[in-house]
Design a protein around this nucleic acid. Structure first.
Lengths: 207, 207
DNA sequence: CCTACTAATTAAACAGTGTTCAATTATATT
DNA sequence: AATATAATTGAACACTGTTTAATTAGTAGG
């Protein structure tokens, strides 16, 4: 009975090879400019065979961005010992921005690009909904902040979304090159500066 | 000498017809799915002739989004009589979000899509830099707020960027369908709710 | 060992894309 | 009317994602 299992492993291995090739190409050229034929060339298979492992191109990149969520989530683990929720909230923001700036293409895929699964019955995409533990983590932290007395009269859900939007807005404007409107001498540091402004606003709100 | 001028007008007119066709198709199908051949079909010219009026596809959509900036800017005109800068700031945010939600495809083109001019010497794109008067308007309003005593110890430039990022973040997460992570029953109103949270934070900061 | 059967792989084709270019048509100037 | 200039075209190029029929490889049963 070991044969079927070995075949299973082989199949899984090739699937992984496709993903690795796709990731390498996408980090180098972006999603749009990475073609099925490019990937096929790299792993020395024919273009058609890729369709035995993935339904279409979207599925490849959807599989890829899952890895991104795990990366981001694992970065958040250092926050576990931080007791003060306000402190934790700020550090979360810093980690989020740092991840985005260090992995702009992956961030782009995860949060900016048109969702690969938009056309599918979006309820199908349970991984995104449930799997996006980072937002749940953010919500839980905000909840704690409220319980401790900060953000009085604020709504947990809406405030969580607002905080997420703030950091997402900064990094996505940066990644998509919309920061040219800020003063030239500030452009290189504007995301960091903006984040610090955000922190000092949080500080002012929490006293 | 009227002939040369008439030809000039004719040329300008066809250029305009291309833009109108492109806009119609793009609002209906999006940029990626609007092809040069589609546009050519609509105006009943050959695909090749379009290249006598625009360098490439990017230039068409770059020309289109200029119109979007004018639209957005003209919406801001109602703010001129608002004396209180804090009041004006909030209304600016509301107008910005409203514009984005009412014209998601145009907003996408203007602020989310990969900048069409990224590869060109970006200094070439003076329209974007100078022409984006909305950010200058925001900066001026923030400056007034600071002068009046709000946002003490804050940096004008960074704070302007932060405020822009906040509204941009909310609408772009919404437009690019990343709001599925928020509670299902809140999804339809989350941008509005987030904006209100933002307003109440501004209120708390300005006293 | 040979035959079946299944699964993996392929080349070729389809319909589309942005873009270029030589040839053609239309227009205006002399 | 002939010439120069500009606009327009169809065809071609090199791509794209995807499908499919045919081929090859690998396994299971007799």
């Amino acid at each position: 009975m070991g044969i079927a299992e070995r075949k299973e492993r082989d199949k899984e291995e090739l699937r992984e090879r496709i993903l690795i090739a796709a990731k390498a190409l996408f980090l180098e050229k972006g999603v749009e400019k990475t073609s099925i034929r490019n990937i096929a060339d790299l792993i020395e298979y024919s273009p058609g065979s890729i369709y035995h492992y993935f339904k279409d191109k979207n599925e490849i990149f959807h599989a890829l961005h899952q890895g991104g969520f795990q990366q981001l989530m694992s970065r958040m683990e250092v926050l576990a010992p931080v007791q003060n929720p306000m402190e934790r909230l700020k550090k979360m923001g810093a980690i989020y921005v740092e991840f985005a700036l260090q992995n702009p293409d992956m961030y782009d895929l995860m949060f900016i690009k048109e969702a690969p699964m938009a056309h599918v019955s979006s309820s199908n995409d349970e991984e995104w909904k449930e799997g996006f533990g980072t937002f749940n983590f953010l919500r839980a932290t905000i909840k704690e902040c409220i319980q401790v007395g900060h953000f009085q009269n604020h709504d947990e859900e809406a405030l969580s979304f607002l905080v997420w939007s703030t950091v997402h807005g900064m990094v996505s404007l940066h990644i998509r090159r919309r920061c040219e409107v800020v003063l030239a001498q500030r452009q290189s540091t504007i995301v960091k500066d903006g984040l610090n402004e955000f922190f000092s606003i949080l500080d002012r709100l929490s006293q």
